[in-house]
Amino acid sequence: MGSANIWITDLFHFYNKKQVSPTLENINLTIPQGQLTALIGRSGCGKSTLLQMIAGLLMPSEGSVRINAHTVTKPSAKWNMMFQKPSLYPWMTVRENAALGLVFSGTYKDKKDRVEELLDMVGLKDHKDKNVQQLSGGQQQRVALARSLATEPDVLLLDEPFSALDAFTRAALQTEVAQICHDYGITMVLVTHDIDEAVAMADKVVIMNHNPGRIVGSMDVNLPYPRDRNEAPFIELKEYLFSEFEKIDQAKESELEQMAS
């Protein structure tokens, strides 16, 4: 798998013309190849919107997203998004779901082994022929992961992909996905409200603010993989990030109050 730089330059977005403040304002972000970036921020600050723009599912009002030499104008299996819901196709087996991206590109015949390997890797060795409706939520999200990885993406975009899972499954998948992205050199962007998740997975955490959606800070996470969540540096970083987050939030609150008075 290759990997990719992502450049976001002077990006603005309005969902409709009557909006007073933009949904996203002046977003500039460069993500070097192979880096794992977490976007965190309050609900409604535009994280999903930004991610959909990187995926090419939505076009920004102004500015652009570039991945390597391409300006992103449409979705591609090379920059792949995993959603909060696995959204598997219930009329297909686990294998058929995982192979779908390859079927679309017409390369499944040559890459059958790849699908088998990926399913083994995400722990679905014994479930390949089952209908996806027979799987648990965590297993379904693993199928979605295999499906995303099958097309050998340069960029993997994750929109709160684990938020519907129980704590154990979530922690296991966080570790696995971060590991996989590192092993294959995939550039990953993760959207989350979970600070724990951000610190567990990311090399760099980017903090966003709402109204308008803006990038207001960032923090590097220089911890080795796999990360032990009980070690002091991990906990310290988490607490630091939390306090930063609160500071930004309070500043925003008082700003809003001032505007109101």
């Binding site: 299996a77 679309f104 097309t151």
Partner: peptide
């Protein structure tokens, strides 16, 4: 499910 469209588009359909 509208997500089925989005996922398929995203996989290059």
């Amino acid at each position: 499910d509208p997500n089925w469209f989005q996922v398929a588009r995203n996989l290059g359909a």
